[in-house]
Amino acid sequence: MSTLVIKDLHVEIDGKEILKGVNLTINTNEIHAVMGPNGTGKSTLASAIMGHPKYEVTSGSIELDGEDVLAMEVDERAQAGLFLAMQYPSEITGVTNADFLRSAINSRREEGDEISLMKFIRELDSKMEFLEMDLDMAQRYLNEGFSGGEKKRNEILQLMMLQPKFAILDEIDSGLDIDALKVVSKGINEMRGEGFGSLVITHYQRLLNYITPDHVHVMMQGRVVKSGGPELAQRLEAEGYEWVKEELGIEDETVGQEA
């Protein structure tokens, strides 16, 4: 079992503090949902874990099985087993999806032990079929000209090809129609199991109809303010966030406001 431990994490962007002490522990074989209205720091948490260059961690810690994640470069975090399905994946001209994925897989392997082309193609084809993707997309330039839904599927394709220990899904459901949502969820559920944990960030409960979380956390004002089981998500869906704010005495849930 692997464990990702986030302790009292404070993060700034352009000198403005967005996360104000996040605490979260995720084990493999668990799916955690982080919910909350817009502007409460959910995506910042995702970006800080992965090491986005614009986000500065000012205090706190992130450890993966005791290893200091914050001391690692972005690629080392990925090698250590972290994966972030991004809300806005970059488009990279001239680099095909297939070449990119092969480089990513080989980056985890020793020189001389690269994945064989045949094996790679077999795996890629089967995963693309599973995600109901057009096989041509392997030869298209990475995310270039992809629709919103295609980009999200492509993120899940990478997730399935790279098999990380922990995947953070940053609003993977945004901009998806119901069919695409089902496919994306199918991919994540396929990953579910002993060696895999996930942090699913969303502000709609809708996604959680397809991916049942083991734990649900609510973020407001740059902190996790409430945690519970799947029933918490359902109550949020039914009643919105107002009751949480009332219960905690929060007037404005966005970052920069204090209770």
Binding site: M50, G51, H52, P53, E73, V74, D75, R77, A78, Q79, F83, L84, M86, P89, S90, I92, V95, D99, F100, S103, A104, S107, R108, Q158, L162
Partner: peptide, 16 residues
Amino acid sequence: YYLMSRGISQHEAERL
């Protein structure tokens, strides 16, 4: 950042 977040080193990412 995107390429590196998949485990590709900075050098390799630049090369790509």
